[in-house]
Design a protein around this nucleic acid. Structure first.
Lengths: 286, 286
DNA sequence: ATCGATACGTCAAGTTTCTGGAAGGTTCCG
DNA sequence: CGGAACCTTCCAGAAACTTGACGTATCGAT
């Protein structure tokens, strides 16, 4: 019956996916939804809805009383794989203004909030310069405000990767001034000037390529039941789980997991997890 | 010359935006880029590129030697507002598998990594049930694994908002069992059963609607120069910035900012910021 | 019980977009 | 020089879409 997706044009495929997205997440679709989202005529929207029914007859019925198409009980997505992470990521992006509401397919946005991350914004042109330099394996001259010097200084760096520490974006780069690979906070780059070919190889960034394994387990002072729940939360087996992280990001990973302080600094219920191989890991942290 | 955008069809507008996105971020576009992204014929792609030139003659020229269209120096985006946050968010989404590479417009993905967040995934159907219940102001019966009880238990909750604490997603809900508003970790919901109308009003969730103001400043033990950089990073004026956060999220906000422990638990360079109004804030934390 | 508003549906004519095929141009490289 | 890898243009036909007109079902208000 259904199942054979003919070669559809991109625009048509998008509209069918949209119908399915709304059916799954909201339970219903309207002709007017298509009109708003894609700017098509009522006429065309009718056609698209009926095309969807023709391709997936068991997924959707028209509810005359509700004046809307509703998902039927035997709904099986045909054009989309429903994904909670992606939906939640969209919720966050729309709520935080990263994505305009009309660019998202979510029709009725759930109320949402998250603890704010008060980090300065990144200038798109500066970011572009860094990204392009990384791609071309070039060095770029940046005016950088470091923690060490009072005034911003020009220096040549050869970026090769981006990293996010939870708050700030970093450009992992070879710094010609210090002769080392370092993290540069992108929002501390005031300006960029020239670029030129770079002789440094990203492969020599040992701290970036070397992986560290963190062994974590539930806090020993939790009750057996609390331990079990934490194990479920973190996907632990037999009281432990391994997390692999680049040595260059180890500091941020420990901080993010709340493992950069003495485990006694928080109550066990707040701390939740502890590092099981702390001795071998902590000496690697920068 | 340029500037007047005629009423274009959705599909055409998307392609022009795509051309502009690639021009801005990568510096060049190919006919083959359009072919890959939208599945059009080489023929049509030519047409679209020339349509773009007709609409924005000063933005792009064909580099015969490079065999590609390149951004010209006077490039002014016409269909898109370049946004670093949105670009970086895409980088992260693609790198973490949230968005398929071919659904993103980024052609050449920069190398990227971030500290992993080892949290269990959320089941899309369970999330959907919660989101729909919130929209319809309904209560839903969930099988929930709490920290308190050894076995999961059925209980009626009326969700009204989603919250993200940096690791886990929560459903802010009225719990009929306890008669209070509480956070339920979505990934700890094993199953959902019935729904029914709810009498509880989201407006009575005091901790959700009450806002707390955090005053933060640079760590006092930093050097004047280091303080200045931190002030720039966090957008502080005169050594302080106010962050407003829901009381229900206060705990997570403090944790995220590293303000939930004694300021002496970390070295000043690691701690970076301190809470200036700690006395009045900390007594509110759950 | 009728009327108006709001949905969706459909038929027809005309425009825009797109494909496929065919022929042609430029630059680079071996 | 010839081939590869780009982009371009012309044409006919198909698919997608718009505009306009007219018809249908449901609901709620008068």
């Amino acid at each position: 019956m259904a199942g054979d997706k003919p070669n559809l044009r991109w625009g048509v495929e998008q509209k069918l996916q949209f119908i399915e997205f709304r059916l799954f997440w909201e339970g219903h679709v309207n002709r007017s939804d298509l009109i708003e989202q894609f700017g098509v005529s009522p006429n065309q929207a009718s056609g698209d809805l009926n095309r969807y029914i023709a391709l997936a007859p068991d997924n959707m019925v028209y509810d005359k009383s509700g004046k809307t198409y509703v998902r039927s009980s035997g709904f099986i997505p045909l054009f989309l794989k429903p994904d909670a992470t992606s939906y939640l990521s969209q919720v966050r992006s729309v709520a935080e203004g990263i994505v305009a509401s009309h660019d998202s397919w979510i029709g009725s946005l759930p109320a949402f909030d998250a603890p704010p991350a008060p980090a300065r914004g990144v200038d798109p042109k500066i970011l572009r310069t860094i990204v392009i330099a990384a791609r071309r394996k070039e060095a770029v001259e940046i005016l950088y405000q470091s923690m060490a010097s009072p005034e911003p200084q020009w220096r040549w760096v050869a970026p090769h990767a981006l990293a996010f520490d939870g708050f700030r974006w970093h450009a992992r780069s070879f710094c010609e001034k210090s002769g080392e690979f370092r993290d540069f906070v992108v929002s501390r780059v005031i300006e960029t000037r020239h670029t030129r070919p770079s002789s440094s190889s990203p492969l020599s960034d040992a701290a970036w390529h070397e992986m560290v394994v963190l062994e974590i387990g539930p806090h020993p002072d939790l009750s057996p039941n609390q331990k079990r729940v934490i194990e479920l939360d973190y996907g632990m087996h037999e009281g432990r789980v391994s997390i692999t992280v680049r040595r260059a990001l180890l500091y941020y990973a420990l901080r993010r997991l709340g493992l950069d302080t003495d485990p006694a600094a928080r109550a066990p219920q707040d701390q939740q997890i502890v590092l099981l191989n702390g001795e071998s890991v902590r000496e690697l942290a920068a």
